[in-house]
Design a protein around this nucleic acid. Structure first.
Length: 446
RNA sequence: CGGAGUGUGGCUCAGCCUGGUAGAGCACCUCGUUCGGGACGAGGGGGUCGCAGGUUCAAAUCCUGCCACUCCGACCA
């Protein structure tokens, strides 16, 4: 979707691998993102996304986009800068605090770098929609946000600047709004599952955005920032399939996922936990929040006068919800879930490349020719391939390949090529198999 | 926002206490030998020691101020 050609030669790429770990990186994902040349820190909590990292970011973003679209949300793009007046109208300008970056333009007009977009989307919505007949609507965008965190840390997991998908639903009343909420709930289950993650929806506090119904989606990881308590059976619940009917009744799915105990430490109820979950199924661990959904009712529509006419001709404020996914955070969270001592182990759907060719004897006529042929064939089959064509020793190439975590490694060296074969290695489990280049191509074409 | 630290070639760090010609490993360049799990030898290039003042014949080193960044805790996609 994003890379036009099907391949890349390492000699032309930009992959600044670090052999040693920069001292500031404490957790695995941060360490590996720096070492694998995915990101470079420019300031506290602010990162440049280097080509490999950017490739992953685009893969994640695209999965999020596809599942939002499938659930009926409509993409648009709002600016990063917003007028302070808009936030004064909703009453949030003074309430938001120092987390919000406030700036002035040359006319001394007050602006802010958006930490979220409820106010702006409400303004956009109210300017265009007058009737309940135009509802429901769900609008989303994928845009950079800035929150001036007191303490940014863990690399992109908690940056000040971060890429977020935020969706906003508009409905005529609470009952309708809950249907919109349920759609996003199901879309989130599918989104995270497609990235290979087990994200568990947990009852959550609503925080400064407000409202009275909210779930956080967390993936379990020891390095997570939130303590979580849940019934371990939630780990085995089925993910709604691709052909789930979003216009149908989603409540059975919601009920299934919300009836088992699952809560973050903020709202945890130990007595209830012990009452509802027998000891062998009690899971107490930590998690990384990768998404959150809210129903907040008329919190913004009332102060901002976002109203529509109902069937009775009477105007009423719309009922809203907002739905966030931390796209850039997910890049780190996925690494937390999938790595080993040697490096990253990308799940295929988010891998920056699907395959990597390692020419173990660069400059030798037979290996060079075999690699070129294979590289062209993979590209012809639309398989994103990184060809390691640098004049490095095999050991260095193995280390690089394991570090950057491309799912399939194809080792082309004199030893196996003597039998007319190449070696296909899976990064996830380290298994390797000798096969002809044609069979390797067939294996990857699945 | 409380607490604790760190700023020295691209990276990891030594040197600072006790002031006196800026160092090591990795990376980089050249040549040669190597080549299936981060090779070896020889030669070479690269640093206003975070910034600004001060003390001193002399400051990476001592003093003052500032800035940046990191880590531990309370808060958030």
């Amino acid at each position: 979707m994003n890379r036009v050609c099907g391949g890349m030669r390492l000699s032309r790429y930009f992959l600044p691998i670090l052999r040693e770990t920069p001292k500031e990186a404490e957790i695995a994902s941060h360490r590996l993102m720096l070492r694998a040349g995915m990101i470079r820190q420019e300031a506290a909590g602010i990162y440049a996304w280097l080509p490999l990292g950017f490739g992953v970011l685009k893969k994640i973003e695209q999965i999020v986009r596809e599942e939002q679209d499938r659930a009926g949300a409509v993409e648009l793009l709002m600016p990063t800068l917003q007028l302070a007046d808009l936030w004064r109208e909703s009453g949030r300008y003074d309430a938001y605090g120092p987390e919000m970056l406030r700036i002035k333009d040359r006319h001394e007009r007050e602006l802010l770098y958006g930490p979220t977009n409820e106010d702006m989307i409400t303004e956009i919505f109210r300017a265009a929609i007058r009737s309940y007949r135009d509802l429901p609507k769900n609008l989303y965008h994928i845009q950079w946000k800035f929150r001036d965190e007191q303490r940014p840390r863990f690399g992109v997991m908690r940056g000040r600047e971060f890429l977020m998908k935020d969706a906003y639903s508009f409905d005529i009343d609470e009952a309708a709004a809950r249907l919109s909420y349920n759609k996003m709930f199901v879309a989130y289950l599918r989104t995270f599952a497609r990235m290979g993650l087990k994200a568990i929806p947990m009852r959550a506090e609503t925080g400064p955005i407000g409202g009275d119904l909210s779930h956080e989606f967390l993936i379990l990881a020891e390095t997570g920032e939130s303590g979580v308590f849940c019934d371990e059976r939630v780990l085995d619940l089925a993910i709604p399939s691709e052909d789930v009917n979003y216009e149908g009744d989603l409540s059975p799915i919601i009920r299934q996922w919300t009836s088992l105990y699952a809560a973050t430490q903020d709202v945890h109820d130990q007595a209830r936990f012990e009452h509802e979950v027998p000891p062998p199924r009690r899971l107490q661990t930590r998690g990384i929040e990768v998404g959150q959904i809210f129903y907040f009712g008329t919190k913004y529509s009332v102060p901002m006068n976002a109203v529509v006419s109902g069937p009775d001709g009477v105007e009423r404020p719309i009922h809203g919800g907002s739905y966030g996914i931390g796209v850039s955070r997910l890049a780190g969270a996925i690494i937390e879930a999938f790595h080993d001592e040697a490096g990253i182990k990308w799940p295929e759907p988010v891998a920056p490349f699907r395959a990597m060719i390692l020419n173990l004897k660069q400059g030798a006529a037979d290996t060079d020719a075999a690699c070129e042929k294979l590289y062209a064939a993979l590209a012809a089959h639309g398989i994103d391939t990184l060809y390691h064509d640098l004049d490095e020793r095999p050991g260095a190439k193995f280390a690089t390949a394991d570090l950057i975590g491309i799912p399939w490694q194809i080792l082309v060296g004199p030893r196996s090529l003597g039998e007319g074969k190449v070696e296909v290695k899976r990064r996830t489990d380290g298994t390797r198999e000798l096969m002809s280049p044609a069979d390797a191509l067939a294996r990857l074409s699945v």
